[in-house]
Design a protein around this nucleic acid. Structure first.
Lengths: 125, 125
DNA sequence: TCCTTGTATCGATGATTGTCGATGCCATGA
DNA sequence: TCATGGCATCGACAATCATCGATACAAGGA
């Protein structure tokens, strides 16, 4: 679930130089965006994502993550479920192992939505 | 506090074409980034930021926000304090009113850190 | 000086969350 | 068939959080 809640900026392709935000975010969009941000807003999950991104092949199984992050296996599994439900990672079971991969564009979609509704350019413009 | 916890990408100017993240995020950086993300990861605070960004002059006082967001005045004040402590807004008291402004570059700094550590380009690359 | 008004703080409460140990499930190999 | 090992789920617990009403504070005006 919650996989299609953050399409990569489907709205507001219109003007390019507005100094401020396009318009106030709707309550529903705020809930959806907050849900994804909440999945990111935890040190353990940020480190898990970073470990996966830095891992060989861009994928990692739970057993690759438990050691480096210093948390128990159930806790890591719990965090990975959170990330998967937020659409930030995908789970692929190969044999006994469950490999996780970062969903391309998911994080940048969050950045784009923030920039869109908060009137901030993505870089330091 | 926590104002200098997120300098705009001070690390990893080295190589430019690595397909994945530069390196795994450190535990301390993860805590700092998660703290800022946690300030963003709430529907009410996202809407407050968006209201300020969309408001005339890019600034708004508490009385401008209580009505549109449908929360009590103490709750709005509480959220604004969270945002201010995260370095996302600044508070300027003029007379009886407290005007809030979005800190330029604060949100984009978050995006940059995410892109840096999760190996994702800021756009759809 | 007193009253009004906009904000911030306090205390309380219900809900959510991060973490763990114990346990269950499933695929592989003997 | 049974044992092993990787992973997910369950139940519990402590901590954090979002929200509110009541109240305190501060600035301007009468």
């Amino acid at each position: 679930m919650a996989l299609d809640l953050l399409p990569v900026v489907d709205s507001a392709p219109a003007t390019c130089c507005t100094p401020r935000a396009e318009a106030a975010i709707t309550a529903e969009d705020a809930v959806a965006l907050a849900r994804t941000l909440k999945a990111l807003a935890d040190p353990a999950r940020l480190r898990l994502l970073s470990l996966i991104a830095a891992h060989e092949g861009g994928e990692a199984c739970v057993c690759d993550l438990v050691g480096p992050i210093g948390l128990s296996q159930p806790t890591v599994s719990h965090h990975m479920k959170q990330l998967a439900e937020a659409g930030l990672v995908t789970r692929e079971k190969r044999g006994v192992w469950a490999y996780f991969t970062i969903v391309p564009g998911a994080v940048s979609a969050v950045s784009d939505h923030l920039a869109l509704h908060l009137g901030v350019a993505t870089a330091g413009t």
